[in-house]
Design a protein around this nucleic acid. Structure first.
Lengths: 158, 158
DNA sequence: GTCTAATTGAAAATGAATTTCAATTTCCTT
DNA sequence: AAGGAAATTGAAATTCATTTTCAATTAGAC
């Protein structure tokens, strides 16, 4: 199974706004704005996908061959800490990053054939999860839910 | 977060039955029954936990210092293929094995403080998951759901 | 008992994630 | 604008779980 999420790329305005947020975060933490961080986060936000550090590095490398893998890796970590990216690990055990908009939580449908990742949200399920936790005296902080199977395109010839 | 699942150990009868199942599986596949496979699967089934290969190896090693890690690792893979163990990966990215009884599916509550793993089953949630999949024209094959938080014991002093 | 194929265990290989370190760059202070 | 302290960069090295290799051993069919 090769997993490769695609979702609608974001408008330029949204990206600018997010890059401002990153800048604030950096300043606030005494960190520095650099050409690399700028280019990497632009590319990441424009792709709008669930990408691995490796995948993003390959994209970046096409355009800016002087930027190394380590910097891409570290920038993704940074985006994660600043709240602009979510770190996710699906069944293939690779760490993927996904641009994060608001605080809305969502879960994933993952196609085992083409690897497409679709996001969904279901409040009823969330409520039931909360109920389950309560039953066990458990204080739930976060959760992870993934449905694996075959997407609309792949289910017929699967 | 250190994860370490415990659940009620199984009765000796259940273990015997499962070891019979393993034997059938081996014979059927032209594989061999060995002292190592016997001891490792006994220990695994008796523990009844979500263990990593490393953890099980350490237990085994206390009693039978001639059995190597690789064999424990391979035996767990084998138990998995024979349907006697489920392979699971939680947030710490370690591969754990869990004795599998019937075919009943269950999900997990994971304590972020003490690492305790509790299993649960919720048919309403399963049904809603199926509904979500349908909405997207997705053919769901399996799913994974984990709730992370603090267990009954840890929630107060967390 | 013989023989062939499977198994074992130590060690090596793999591969993603992370860290190290010397050289470079940012940006605060003057 | 220049100086300088601290952060950043990128290549290479390291880590660590997992998986594979290979020579020696063992199971079990005949």
């Amino acid at each position: 199974m090769k997993i490769s999420g695609r979702r609608t790329a974001e408008g330029t305005k949204g990206i600018k706004q997010k890059k401002e947020r990153l800048k604030s975060f950096l300043k606030e933490k005494g960190l520095k704005s650099t050409r690399q961080r700028d280019l990497i986060s632009s590319e990441f936000l424009a792709m709008g996908n669930h990408v691995t550090a490796e995948e993003l590095y390959r994209e970046i490398n096409k355009k800016y061959s002087d930027i190394g893998f380590t910097t891409v890796y570290r920038t993704l970590k940074l985006l994660n800490k600043s709240g602009l990216a979510a770190e996710r690990v699906f069944a293939d055990n690779l760490t993927r990053y996904e641009p994060l908009t608001a605080e809305e939580h969502h879960d994933h449908l993952i196609c085992m054939k083409c690897g497409a990742i679709t996001e969904f949200q279901d409040l009823k399920i969330e409520r039931l999860q909360e109920r389950v936790a309560e039953e066990f005296g458990f204080l739930a902080v976060s959760h992870k839910m993934e449905l694996y199977g075959y997407c609309n395109k792949c289910r017929d010839h699967a």
